[in-house]
Nucleic acid binder design. Structure first.
Length: 665
DNA sequence: CTTAGGG
DNA sequence: CCCTAAG
């Protein structure tokens, strides 16, 4: 039996931040590891989170349930436990819920901008929303504040009718898997079991909506991330509790494919409305963000990083890896989020991620952003995961199916993504060019700027990606969807096919930014993203076009294993910074080197620096022909050798000094 | 947590 | 990059 499920995740404002792996992260790391056994969370975690919420509600009942019960059971149990309140409560501050309410109920959006247009979907959903509203209105209202903060910030929330489904996820608990779309009318789905999700994008404006259907099995409407998503969850359990919430980010526990250990539950990840991509790590100023961001990002300060914080939403990520990934995903509802990326120069580009094509009115508004001439503002509405093809035996259990899907998704999202920048349909490969040089400036080209999440070849073994098709969506580009997403739901935005090139190119950096702080002043170019206020940028979808998941077991096993961090070759600028620091500090003080030259580069640990130095020394000693990767200027290599020789000598002297002493003793 | 090295 | 031993 071949099930083809299409998972469209629209993450509006979904980001994959890089989690700083600070110097001190090690400990955390270890902690995390212990805690989680196989979990690998990365971008995916967010999804999981969301899903989790949908399915299970906020937190997690979890442990016990999960641990003891069978998978099936556990799900069931969990489901029962869901309730709107809990969901809502989780992130009251977020306003997601409220939005939902608003959309359904009031229909008004605080920000008018948000809903410039009505969608069909909206109308559709309205009823649902209203239902929900009725039920829980009180609670919700109380809990949540109305209006999404996000919306305030950025106006561009609105999606046009086009934007459709961002997230569609369907699962059935029972043995059968049904694929459905949103019809609620259909009972077929409902009947059996538990969980079916259908999320569709819906335009809610910036906010996310949370809906719950209580009665029969109902439907939870969620719009996560951005804009409009409707999620229906049909829960067989009648309970009172089914609830849906839409958070931009929420946690999903259950999804965990890994049967084993506890699942990670992510308590909350909320969508942050805005986050900065590269704010100084220390600053952490995500002003706009809710607490969410922090949690997602691991912590700005290294201290916090892995450990879950009780107070805020924690994201108990089991693995540090998750953090390690520089990328994290954040959703934003309306896509209101804005992100700023600062490059070494200190420039900051703000990005708003929002659903895909964003052509939104907001853009116009954004112009205001431009005020600072030299900065390019980019808004990314969302990144989507278009399709996922799964093949699984009929005899497989639902649980295995879930795991399989999870794995597939995880492989894609968590396996390593890189961001590709497209300009007028062409992939911009030179990471070293400045935006200006590339033609990405606030006054031009914005319309043709697109971003794509591309599978990182090195990291996605399991996934079969066709190279050629990364899903890319040029922002405004009218192009048709990529082939990958055949169905309408597929994005509206046109996508251009693009390059599939694997790694080397430029994109490698996650938006998150790695801009390493220090190294080169010139780095700015690294972040390719740019946009001006005007244009919305569409986000590209992930391309995992089709993924075949085959043997679950293997994968799962694999997945359980900690993921390896993505490879991030050192740029010349970084090498330069490293060399300079080592010349000054010497070779044995990697922590100091880290602090001195890479303090802002969260993804570079002192161990990484030490390793890099090791390889640099090696590189310097071999013939140029034998060197691979981005060529390092000979001058730097010479300095490496010189410094290495010098410090080796120093060390030797030190040792000699000691030697006599020892003797004496 | 840091270092240092091997893998 | 990861993992580990050692400090």
């Amino acid at each position: 039996m071949v099930l083809q499920k299409r998972l469209d995740y629209g993450f509006h404002d979904y980001q994959v931040p890089t989690m700083p792996r600070a110097t001190r992260s090690a400990r955390k790391r270890s902690i995390c590891k212990k805690g989680t056994e196989g979990s690998q969370m990365r971008a995916f975690d967010l999804l999981a989170t969301v899903a989790d919420k949908l399915l299970h509600g906020t937190e997690g009942p979890t442990t016990n349930t999960i641990d003891t019960s069978t998978e099936k059971d556990r799900y069931t149990v969990v489901d029962k436990e869901l309730n709107v309140d809990s969901l809502c409560k989780v992130e009251p501050s977020q306003g997601f819920v409220s939005e939902l309410v608003l959309s359904g109920h009031d229909k008004k959006c605080e920000s008018k901008d948000c809903f410039p247009q009505h969608n069909e979907h909206v109308e559709h959903s309205l009823p649902l929303a209203s239902e929900v509203t009725n039920f829980e209105m009180g609670n919700l209202a109380s809990e949540v504040r109305v209006g999404s903060p996000i919306s305030k910030e950025s106006d561009n929330c609105e999606l046009d009718g086009k934007s459709e489904v961002i997230v569609k996820y369907e699962l059935l608990k029972t043995e059968e898997v049904l694929t459905r779309t949103q019809d609620r009318g259909d009972d077929s789905c409902k009947r059996e079991d538990p969980v079916i999700w259908d999320q569709k994008a819906r335009v809610l404006g910036n906010s996310v909506s949370c809906g719950k259907v209580i009665h029969n099995k109902q439907i939870v409407q969620n719009s996560y991330f951005a804009t409009q998503n409707n999620v229906k969850v049909v829960d067989r359990d009648d309970d009172e509790n089914s609830s849906g919430c839409t958070h931009p980010v929420s946690s999903i526990k259950s999804f965990r494919t890994v049967p084993s250990s506890r699942d990670r539950r992510i308590k909350k990840v909320s969508a942050s409305k805005s986050w900065k991509v590269v704010p100084r790590y220390r600053d952490e100023s995500l002003s706009k963000t809710d607490g969410v961001w922090k949690s997602l990002s691991c912590c700005k300060s290294s201290h916090d990083s892995c450990r879950p914080q009780k107070s805020q939403m924690n994201i108990p990520f089991k693995k540090r890896k998750f953090f390690d990934c520089s990328s994290s995903v954040s959703n934003s509802d309306g896509g209101v989020n804005s992100e700023g990326i600062s490059d070494s120069n200190g420039k900051v580009a703000k990005m708003d991620s929002s659903g895909r094509s964003c052509s939104v009115s907001g853009h116009g508004h954004h112009k205001s952003f431009q005020s600072k001439d030299s900065h390019v503002k980019i808004r990314i509405k969302s990144f989507r995961v278009p399709e996922l093809f799964i093949e699984i035996a009929e005899t497989a259990t639902v649980g295995s199916l879930k795991r399989t899907v999870m794995e597939a998704v995880t492989a894609i999202l968590g396996g390593g993504l890189r961001v590709g920048v497209l300009l007028q349909g062409k992939k911009v490969r030179d990471d070293n060019k400045t935006l200006f040089q590339t033609g990405i400036s606030h006054d031009n080209q914005l319309d043709s700027l697109g971003f794509a999440l591309e599978p990182n070849p090195s990291r996605t073994p399991l996934v079969l990606c066709k190279e050629d098709s990364p899903c890319i969506l040029p922002c405004d580009a009218p192009e048709p969807l990529t082939r990958y997403s055949p169905d309408a739901s597929a994005d509206h935005p046109g996508s251009s096919n693009v390059l599939p090139e694997p790694h080397g190119d430029s994109l490698g950096n996650f938006i998150e930014s790695d801009h390493d702080s220090a190294p080169s002043p010139t780095d700015t170019s690294n972040h390719k993203s740019t946009v001006d206020s005007k244009a919305l940028v569409t986000v590209p979808a992930m391309t995992a076009e089709a993924i075949s998941v085959v043997p679950m077991h293997r994968k799962s096993k694999r997945s359980e294993v900690a993921q390896r961090r993505i490879r991030r070759p050192f740029s010349v600028a970084e090498v330069e910074a490293l060399v300079q620091a080592v010349e000054k500090l010497g070779t044995g003080r990697w922590r100091d080197v880290k602090l001195r030259a890479f303090d802002n580069a969260k993804h570079r640990t002192y161990v990484d620096l030490k390793d890099k130095w090791k390889t640099l020394v090696h590189t310097a000693r071999i013939s140029p022909q034998q060197r691979r990767g981005e060529p390092v200027p000979q001058e730097l290599l010479d300095r490496v050798l010189t410094a290495h020789a010098y410090w080796s000598k120093q060390q030797a002297k030190y040792q000699l000094k000691r030697q006599p002493e020892r003797f004496l003793l």
